[in-house]
Nucleic acid binder design. Structure first.
Lengths: 267, 267
DNA sequence: TAGTGGTCTAGACCACCTT
DNA sequence: AGGTGGTCTAGACCACTAG
């Protein structure tokens, strides 16, 4: 029967395990009511390898057929798992070339992680001017946001972002120093910081939550943005999560919204 | 051959047409380079029926197999088309029951078309108090937003929305009177107005765009929200589109963000 | 019990890309 | 030419829902 597969169909680095397969784990089998569909198991196994760094961002995954053989499932099941990961922007599929681990490139920054756009909905990544990078102990708030203990070492990066020649955003980024040792110490803070997280610290930002409020500009902020104190600003309070779901960055952005706005799509 | 299908495989209300099928339209055929995949054609055909009101919101679609027979494609191809429509929230699939045309119920309003949440990210649909419903001629701005001509008749609805007992949002809704004749004239404005569009006017809101800015509260607004004039407010400028992609509603919401915030998810 | 969508397989062919 | 993902089919079985 095609449903019956080998015990050792899943091999990781040559050592055999059997998380999928085995006749009694097949779908719909009584006594295994909470069992996940095969494609979900395959998705989880692939995701695990992304988390563990077995396949690094930018590299090509094995072909669908190869993965099918390795996991002991059909190509169609692997396809469904990969399609799910592609829908989460964790892999990128290219016809004729292969399936690749997603990278934090300009496109992703611009279309997925930066929602401020100009008047004609035209998108443009801002330039960044780093104001400071300080190291300290996590406050209660910071600890809560980053799932740390109060007092744990954190780095705080402050920068002004310039859109179309105008200083438009003042941003404070807080990360754990345990996760990002020496971040910013050698003045190596690129504009797209998620690329740095990914390349140097092997931390992949998979998703984020943004909480938006309106706030009046405090004098220090107003000066940086060259506006009047009290001007209404859009505050974006973002928590970014890594592949394994842990919060890895807390970011507070204060945005001037006279020449730009935050664009959201509802479905 | 399985690829060769009957000419008259697509029947709409008994009359036969052949948009899909016919041997020479099959995928990858030279001389037809811009041809869409079958599942995309099937998706478009089903969407057309949703637009035309052949299947009304809440009703059940024919089964996958029936649709497959009707369109002259396999069940798997129909499935792919329906899955795509389900991903756009245009249909809802329920195992064991069938595929249904999506409705604007409370769930959809709350999780897809209302992003203001309370402190613990708890969701709650606001109560609405209608302030006025006036009829007039479209301004240049309104005409541009709704793809009308300047001077076309529009209705303007103004309401205050209450969250947790506190007046939190002042909202102005502008719609074409041609599309929504007599809207609000008999004081029939429910809290979830998209339900009204759908049931009474057979207009389905399929998606929307929101443009967010920070604005200071003008005195009239401040009074309605029981706050100080000049308080920073979150302005949500929304355009809603119907199934066929036409803009059908323009809405401007001014939100107080001390006890609530706008929640966005980034992927 | 019958009908629905959900999962899984196997196999064919296509479009696209690289070599 | 060979490999990759993309499309399409046919058929099996499962889970769920309703009458």
């Amino acid at each position: 029967m095609s449903y019956i597969r080998h015990m050792n169909c899943l091999r990781v680095n040559g050592s055999a395990v059997n998380q999928i397969s085995t006749k009694d784990m097949r779908p719909g089998k009584a006594g295994n009511p909470a069992r996940q569909p095969l494609y979900a198991q395959v998705r989880a196994l692939i995701l695990r390898r992304l988390i563990d760094g077995v396949w690094r961002p930018g590299t090509m995954l094995p072909s669908e057929i190869q993965l099918g053989v390795e996991f002991g499932v059909s190509q169609g099941t692997v396809r469904k798992a990969l399609d799910a990961l592609a829908a989460e922007n964790l892999v990128v599929r290219r016809q004729g070339r292969g399936t690749f681990v997603a990278e934090h490139d300009l496109d992703r920054a611009l279309f997925h992680f930066f929602h401020m756009v100009g008047e004609n909905a035209e998108r443009q990544l801002p330039d960044s001017r780093v104001l400071s990078c300080r190291y300290g102990k996590a406050s209660a708030t910071e600890a809560a946001q980053l799932a740390l203990l109060k007092g744990d070492p954190v780095a705080r990066i402050r920068r002004v972002r310039v859109l179309g020649g105008v200083p438009a955003i003042v941003e404070t980024i807080v990360v754990s120093e345990a996760l990002f040792p020496n971040i910013g110490r050698d003045g190596d803070l690129p504009n797209t910081i998620y690329e740095l997280y990914e390349r140097r610290y092997e931390v992949t930002v998979a998703r984020a939550e943004e909480r938006l409020r309106a706030k009046a500009a405090e004098p220090a902020i107003a000066e940086l943005l060259e506006i009047e104190p009290g001007t209404p600003l859009l505050e974006i309070d973002r928590t970014a999560f890594s592949l394994d779901g842990a919060p890895v960055e807390w970011r507070l952005s204060l945005c001037e919204t006279r020449s730009h706005y935050y664009l959201a799509e509802l479905v």
